[in-house]
């Protein structure tokens, strides 16, 4: 991946993650009432599609990150380089759990199970996003400082 494409996709990745998490929170809140499962179904599908796109972009960025950014981070902010790995793990958890919750909703089964799965996805996604913000800030400080 070229440097300019990496620089262009990084903010897209960050903004899309905020959008995906907001979309994922929606069905988790809606499913407090079982009768809202119909509305939650569509939003959960969109949220899962956003998460899939987000993971796809992340997987595209990852090789460039490991080559260009990680060596510098390991020297300047080792903690950021270490916790970035956690972000990748939790992003994967969020994707598969969101898929599981959405399929459960579309199968018209117990909405509590779907809510738990989507809630776990949201929790993993929120932690991953927090780590992402920290790593981006550490990268910026490392590059400019």
């Amino acid at each position: 991946m070229t440097a300019w494409l990496y620089a262009a996709l990084m903010p897209v990745h960050g903004l899309l993650s905020a959008l995906a998490l907001a979309a994922l929170a929606h069905p988790v809140v809606l499913l407090r009432r079982a009768e809202a499962a119909g509305r939650a179904r569509t939003v959960a599908l969109y949220a899962t599609m956003l998460l899939a796109a987000l993971n796809g972009i992340g997987w595209g960025l990852y090789p460039s990150y490991r080559q260009a950014v990680k060596p510098r981070l390991r020297l300047d902010v080792p903690t950021a380089a270490v916790v970035f790995e956690t972000k990748e793990h939790l992003a994967w958890f969020a994707l598969v759990l969101a898929v599981a919750g959405t399929v459960t909703l579309y199968a018209r089964q117990d909405p509590r199970a779907a809510r738990v799965s989507l809630g776990l996805a949201l929790g993993c996604g929120l932690v991953a996003a927090g780590i992402g913000v920290y790593v981006a800030a550490a990268d910026w400080v490392s590059a400019t400082g």
């Binding site: 598969v96 599981a100 459960t104 579309y106 018209r108």
Partner: peptide
């Protein structure tokens, strides 16, 4: 999947929930 018979829907949901959980556990291990 609208109109999925209840028994089939339960199988699909159970499979999906096990998929999500097992994928996380497998990755972690």
């Amino acid at each position: 999947m609208s109109g999925t018979p209840p028994a089939r829907g339960a199988r699909v949901a159970a499979g999906a929930l096990v998929f999500g959980t097992a994928a996380c556990v497998s990755y972690a291990l």
